[in-house]
Design a protein around this nucleic acid. Sequence first.
DNA 1: AACACGCGCAACCGCAGACTC
DNA 2: TGAGTCTGCGGTTGCGCGTGT
Length: 250
Amino acid sequence: MGRAPCCSKDSGINRGAWTAEEDMILSEYIAIHGDGGWRALPKKAGLKRCGKSCRLRWLNYLRPDIKRGNISADEEELIIRLHKLLGNRWSLIAGRLPGRTDNEIKNYWNTRLSGKLPNKQCPQSKSPHIFQVIPVKTTAVRIPKGLNKRVCISNARRDHQDFRFPGDGDTSKPWCDLSVEELITDNDLQFVDFTETNNFVDTQSPSMVVDGLYEFPHFQQYNDGVTAFDFFEDFRLEELEAMTCSKDVK
DNA sequence: AACACGCGCAACCGCAGACTC
DNA sequence: TGAGTCTGCGGTTGCGCGTGT
């Protein structure tokens, strides 16, 4: 499948650092026309940049909701936890940190954290509780297309006897405030992963270790077609995906 | 003051999946 | 169905700045 390069190196395209004027042109163009259509955007906006460069500049620097400043301790904790769960899926991780970009998190990990956690099996963190709670209970919820995800998750949470959240009960947080990671979305199913390290430790549940990688002490089908899987954090994500995406799984 | 070095970050590159026709 | 195109992602590069000598 032959494909022309996004922007050839000898066609008068500007490269390297963006100037303030280029930033202004791009910002103003997107403010009027919206983002997207990156390939055609530079020509329309009058920028001598390739579309990919414009997209990257917008997403990583110019977007109004970008959060500036240092990564907080809480954010670092979350990055570590999500990286443990998701691996180098920077865009997914960034999706859990409002205002942070995948590039920023990737850079942060590569420059600060990857060296700080040399041994992924026995990490020595300033926040030791993150790693002391293994196995951590996680729940993936399978939602048929067309159902209201918010309602389904709410119902699943309500009905699932092993869900425990901080302050659960009358004062429990709404689901949207919880640590929820959408792992997989396709036309038919949505999978949502609940991860709350400290609060999901469940030493009571029976173990069903499969090749020492994951466990399914609970499996529950709800009236609205939602299926919840409980497992523990020591799993290989691609195996979980393969398993839960299978048409055989209900 | 000048130079070397290391680090952090912005930007680039190539690939692969999604999309369109 | 397949070719062509677009978009997004993750790995990598290289520049600029701060710090040490």
